[in-house]
């Protein structure tokens, strides 16, 4: 029972971060209609930003959120503006070309990171990286708990923004009918650029929060792009609530897989769930939640 609870807690905490990754991916999916295959690579860039600020400026990793998130927002905006929007203007090109472009962007980001930082593993060790506290006999990682709280706050803030502000509603409107939105006075191109920025900012927050308990090397992007993809499919493409459920599900699946089957199966369990959902619940959790 103790082990079970412990695993549950670890899974939910990690799931909070995964939700953040999935939320960004889902926003982009909904508005652009494409899978951003540079998502994990953007997270990797954010982790290096965090690493540099921590190592060379001596800033607290949580304070660095105020640098890494805006930095990645900017990167997302630039990627959309200069690599994806131009493709949208060529009518003969299919949306698939944008997806290919994100693959290219991901590769460039990875190789630039390798060029600057080499392929070595680095990490950010803080005083609380390995600290834990106990609650009812279950141990909580301090860093992961803080990360989870940040993730919840960011997710909550994002929902408030999407549901209660004109800009947030405009993002949803463009996702649902871009032409009708433009009749309402919404500049869809600007919304797309903003959305890519927000998606990159969200995954940046996840990467930044993850770094104190993780390690970093240039190729870490790929696996996280895959995770983001799995979360988005689990949630039902473009569904924000689904992305959160998908994130927590993947976190739990990995935690239980690691505990009850073996560490080396952590990733496999996630993929098995992914395939099971595709087979038995195509459309993901969106089918159940309807949003």
């Amino acid at each position: 029972m103790e082990v079970f609870l412990q695993t549950l807690v670890a899974g939910v905490l990690k799931g909070g971060l995964y939700a953040l990754i999935g939320l960004g991916m889902t926003l982009i999916m909904g508005v652009m209609g494409i899978i951003n295959l540079a998502h994990g690579q953007m997270m990797m860039v954010a982790m290096y930003v965090t690493y540099v600020c921590f190592n060379y400026l001596g800033l607290d990793p949580y304070l660095i959120l105020f640098i890494s998130v805006p930095a990645l927002f900017l990167l997302g905006v630039l990627v959309q503006r200069y690599t994806l929007n131009p493709l949208l203007k060529v009518e003969s090109l299919l949306p698939e070309n944008q997806v290919l472009m994100t693959v290219g962007v991901g590769m460039v980001l990875t190789e630039v990171a390798r060029f600057i930082f080499t392929s070595n593993y680095v990490s950010v060790k803080t005083t609380y990286s390995d600290a834990t506290f106990f609650l009812g006999g279950v141990s909580f990682s301090v860093a992961l708990t803080i990360a989870f709280c940040f993730a919840c706050a960011l997710t909550g803030g994002m929902f408030w923004f999407l549901l209660k502000t004109d800009l947030g509603r405009s993002i949803r409107a463009v996702a649902q009918d871009a032409e009708a939105a433009s009749l309402m006075g919404v500049n869809a191109e600007r919304i797309r650029t903003l959305t890519m920025g927000l998606g990159a900012g969200l995954v940046a927050a996840a990467g930044n929060l993850l770094l104190p308990i993780y390690y970093l090397f240039p190729d870490i992007g790929g696996p996280f792009t895959r995770k983001a993809f799995v979360i988005t499919i689990l949630g039902g493409l473009g569904s924000t609530v689904g992305a959160i459920l998908g994130g927590v599900t993947l976190g739990l699946a990995e935690a239980f897989g690691a505990t009850y089957i073996g560490m080396e199966f952590e990733d496999m369990v996630g993929l098995v769930i992914f395939i099971a959902v595709l087979l038995f619940l195509p459309g993901g959790f969106k089918r159940l939640t309807k949003i």
Partner: peptide
């Protein structure tokens, strides 16, 4: 065809 935002 109305073109409402169906999920809003």
């Amino acid at each position: 065809g109305r073109r409402l935002f169906p999920e809003m």
